[in-house]
Nucleic acid binder design. Structure first.
Lengths: 276, 276
DNA sequence: GATCTGTCTATTGTTTACGATGTTGTGACC
DNA sequence: GGTCACAACATCGTAAACAATAGACAGATC
């Protein structure tokens, strides 16, 4: 079962973690679904060890719930979680914008604007939604990097991933507006106007939250309720959308290609968004 | 070798994680030291599995550095890390104080003040430094809880633990002053004055940083994790540039009592500080 | 003497197998 | 209908083994 390609520069658990993240974002692993170590291990072509470790990290990062002796279940955002998520983002990122404005070099500012340019180009040419989402993630991560605080960066990265998860079904709908706001933030950061940059970022995230809440009905809190009304869900697919959270004892999970199946480093996965 | 007590409500890795944290705070595992899975497993009376998982979590929480095929090394705070740490704390906790002031119930306010009372009592009677540190942690965690944002709470908890680690050697010296400030914050939160509470908390943490820097000489830079080159290169992997240099290849680590040796739940460890 | 090279050792990364334990759901029974 | 025993399932932990590799060390070469 050892895969023939000898390149294992990074531990398997990392690959598994990323693969599972992709599957969660793509809703291949639907909210409420039960993640069984052995089944995942079989699907990914590894043993249970790395899967266990990846699941624990997914748990710490808020993707799944680990019930001590029973298993891992895919989280689905409750209204409270959505509120808290955007609140945290608003805090962290507006502060990051402020710090970034104070610590921004010419190169940093240029890098931010380059991302905006690339996004504009992408919007004109109608690039894939996944790529645009990756660009968005890169913009926000870059702001965090310019702020030059590794703790903040780490926290922000966690939030950024979850953001991709939330927005996966409707990512394209709000892109043009968002990128106007991104550019405004970038210019304020580049010119060192800290307070204005922070305010702009706060507004941006606040609007992004409103857009999310208008478009995306959140699951009712308690969880006993099944059948999320698929009404307002845009045509953006969502394969197994209405999943009853409680009681999906054996949610059938489609197969997936084994991990680490020979591929040196580039790892041509559909969307590799998390930058750096 | 199976431990005779049958009560394993929580996974062993949790116990191991907490035990290792204690050992790190107590400097039983000294900064720069090499943590060898098998040795720790032997010392704690468990197998390698739970130790691996605990080490990975310690890595993710910033306690140790994990070098892919070589091992786990205890971090030691560099000046930059100290700066970033207090910066992050100042942000998170002042924000939390503001939110807490807006969302504080009568019971919440009373709980905060009760902690302050207990601390005053402890200061008068000269209670152990470890207990006072635990009280401090509890105060800050309680503020985060009153803010009612689980993401913020989780981030704050991570910072709080590291705080105990930083301050372990000098925890008693700044206690009385700190508790005056704590009480001031508590009263502002209790009376709902958000902006003032935030400012007070910011001041408190800022002073706490100054006290730390005056007393504690920080190690010269070049320590733990790699330096992120901020923006510019999005794809570059940057595999841990600056190595721990300190080079304590086989730091002798004293023995420790096995984990989970009997004891149902109360777990009478010397200082059980992390509240909830 | 300094540098390069090859070997050796220690430790991690991963797999496999097994037993113990806790959770959940089910069906018998009252 | 409600309660209890039981079986199925999945995790949790242990143990043992092996491959791969990073680092240390000794030896050869310049």
């Amino acid at each position: 079962m050892v895969d023939p390609s000898p390149i294992h520069a990074v531990p398997l658990r990392e690959h598994v973690y990323e693969r599972l993240q992709e599957m969660l974002i793509a809703r291949v692993l639907p909210p409420g679904g039960h993640l069984v170590e052995e089944r995942l291990a079989g699907q990914l072509g590894v043993s249970r060890g790395p899967v266990r470790e990846a699941l624990q990290r997914l748990h710490r990062d808020g993707w799944v719930t680990l019930r001590p002796r029973y298993g891992a279940f895919v989280n689905q955002p409750t209204p409270d979680q959505v509120t808290e998520f955007f609140e945290a983002r608003e805090l962290l990122e507006s502060w990051a914008a402020s710090l970034a404005a104070q610590r921004c070099t010419d190169g940093d500012g240029a890098a931010l604007l380059r991302i905006c340019d690339e996004a504009d180009e992408g919007l004109r040419t109608g690039r894939a939604a996944g790529e645009m989402a990756a660009l968005t993630a890169r913009f926000h991560t870059t702001v965090l990097e310019i702020a030059r605080n590794h703790i903040l960066l780490e926290f922000g990265r966690q939030l950024s991933h979850r953001s991709r998860w939330f927005f996966a079904p409707l990512v394209s709908s709000l892109a043009p507006r968002a990128w106007e706001e991104h550019r405004a933030v970038a210019e304020l950061i580049g010119s060192g106007r800290a307070d204005e940059a922070a305010a702009a970022m706060r507004t941006h995230i606040s609007e992004s939250r409103d857009a999310y809440l208008e478009t995306q009905p959140v699951a009712p809190d308690g969880g006993a309720d099944a059948a999320v009304p698929a009404a307002a869900v845009p045509a953006a697919a969502v394969p197994a959308a209405a999943v009853p959270d409680a009681a999906v004892p054996h949610a059938a999970v489609p197969d997936a290609a084994p991990v680490g199946a020979g591929r040196p480093a580039g790892d041509a996965l559909p969307s590799r968004a998390a930058p750096t």
